[in-house]
Amino acid sequence: MTARCFVNSMAQVSCRQPLSDEWFDNPCALTAAYTRAQEPDTKGLIVPSEARRMSKILKRAVATSITALNNSCVEQPDAIITGTGMGCMENSEKFLVDMCRYGENCLKPSLFMQSTHNTISSLIAIILKCHGYNNTYSHKGISFESALLDAFVQIKNGNIGNALVGAHDEVTPFMALVMKRTHPEYTNITETSVSAILSSTETDSNICEITDVNLFHNPEPEFLAGILNKTDDSLLLLGVNGNQLNDTPYMSLLEKLSYSPSTLRYKNIFGDNFSSPALAFYAAATILKQQRIPAPLYCDTSKNYTGKINNITILNHCDNTAWSLIRLKKFDLCGS
């Protein structure tokens, strides 16, 4: 575990302007209960003949992956690792609908073939002709962090020099209705596609450094507070969304802290879905690069952070069972 792990480039598709950081200068709060992603212009990113079988999530994933790769110091990734809570939901849903309509005959192979969770990672590998490590994690709201942990560990121990890590979740209108019932803690249901190039190479184009990735299962607030108290992390980016069911576990944790951090949020801008922690990661990395924090991201505007932004700690939970902690650090070439 001696190598360092940097974020070299990123790209996002969400409810904000796609493949752009435009939201950073014009952050506005979401109001709708369900907002679909803004589709990216895939011209130049996806060959039309290859696009014909791709569902929305696949087009978005390829668009963010190719954009991140084009903007990076990496030509061919050593690994492609994806997090997706629900996988290719649109195709799975269509297959289930066809089973209701046609019974068990005349079902479409391309829907099944591209319904599995790992369709995304392997499609990117097929397009890039990348024979490297290829894995997919599907674990509720910590799918992205599971993929990140895998890449982080392998870069740190020198197994790989870089990785394309992504998190992708689509929510169809029907699934949004179901999710309102199954996930009453979600305030604004959205969709996510984030791709990042991680690399062990120190180069001036690096956005930030990843210094820690952790997954916890059913942790006590005291346990998490104990970890934070040791480090005095002064900027916390939390998955709060204004819903009591969702926010109470974060508040319980904050009460146990021995210091008073500035707390930030992102779900008011990007909404909720199983992959939204990837947007927290993207937002924190952007803040570290730009060295400023858009006002709507403060949980409490009276506690604006004024110092140099050196570290951001991202905390997310899903159902208060699956927790993740990511630490990002400002990148300085030849510094630190």
Binding site: T84, T116, H117, N118, T136, Y137, S138, H139, S146, H217
Partner: peptide, 20 residues
């Protein structure tokens, strides 16, 4: 995965790989 894990005891971390 969580339901399996929780039936066994209290794990530190739990996750799921899904590559068909």
């Amino acid at each position: 995965t969580e339901l399996i894990a929780d039936s066994l005891g209290k794990f530190r971390m739990v996750t799921t790989s899904s590559t068909a």
